[in-house]
Amino acid sequence: MAKGPDTATRARRLLALLPHLRRNETIPLARLAAAVGCTPAEVAADLTTLTMCGVPPFTPFDMIDLLIEGDSVTVNLEAPGIERPLRLTIAEARALGAALDAAGFAPRSALRQKLLAVAADSVSTDELERTVRAGAAPGGIADLYATLAAAADEHEKVLITYFTGSTGRTSQRVVHPWALVNRLGTWYLIALCEGVGEERVFRLDRIRDALGTGEPFTPPTMVEYAVTPGPEHLPVAEIRFAPDAVLPDTRSWPGVVFETLGDGSTIARMPYQTVSWIARRVTARLGEAEALGPAEVRDAVRTLAETLLRTLG
C-alpha cells in the first residue's frame, strides 16, 4: 500500500485548501484536487477532515461546514481566519523558481519576479537563484515558450521561423501548436505543419521567433508526446569506435546499442531519423568513430568532413 504524506505535509495541503472553499459555492472535487496537487479521492478525505475543524468553542457555527456529494463539495460555512492564500514557503518558492527555470524564465524575468513577490519575507529569492538552477541560462526561450503556450491554449495558429539543424536552412512555417514536451531538459513543440500537412516536432531552441496569426485551428483528439519515432521504425547505422574512444551516452545517442569486440573496439548500432543527423554525430567524433554502413551514411560523413575542411581552408 502506498504510504500517505506525513502529518505536516498533509496539514500544508489542508491549509492550502482553505482559501479555495468559498461560502455557498459548489466546487468540483477534481478542481480542488488539481489546485493542491492530489487526487480527488485524497481531496475528499481532506475535506472530511476539515469538517472536524474549527475554532473554540466548536459550536456548529464555529466549524467548517461542508457537504460532499458525489464529485463535488458545497461550502456552507468557510474557515474562520484563513480566507486568503498563504505566502510561499521557501520550499514552494524553490519549486516555483526551478519550474520557471526549466521553461527558460531567468531570475530577473518579469514573470518570475511577479510570482516570487508573494514569497514569505523570510525567503531570500536571491539566495535561491544562486543555489538552485533547473534549466536554460540567459538568452533562453522564455518569450517563445509563453507565446507558444498561449497559442496552444487558445488553439491559435502560429507563424514560426525555424532553423533545421540537419540542413542548416531557416524557413517560415505556419503550425498548429498542439503540445509542449520536455525531454531531458530540452523543450520541443509538437505541431501540425500546414506546409507539409503532417505532424512535426520542433526544438524550441531552434525556433527563432513565433507570432500568433489570429487564425484558429481545431485541435486533434489525441496527441502523441513522442519527440522521435520508435527505433523499430528507423534505419540503423553501424558505427565502429576505436578501442580508446569515449563512447557516447544514450542521452545524446538515443536508442544506441553497443557491442564490444575482441580487439577492444566497440560497434554501436544507432537508429537514425536523417542521414545528415547521424553523419554530423559521427563526424564530430573527429576520427574516433567510423560509419561502417549503410553506404548513404558513410558517404554523408565523408562529404560533411570534406565540406568542413574546406571552410577551415
Binding site: A35, G37, L88
Partner: peptide, 16 residues
C-alpha cells in the same frame, strides 16, 4: 519538487 510546486501553484491560484 512536484509536491511543493503543486502547493505553490495552489496558493497562486494558477492551478486547477
Amino acid at each position: 519538487f512536484t509536491d511543493d510546486l503543486a502547493l505553490a501553484l495552489g496558493k497562486l491560484g494558477t492551478a486547477g
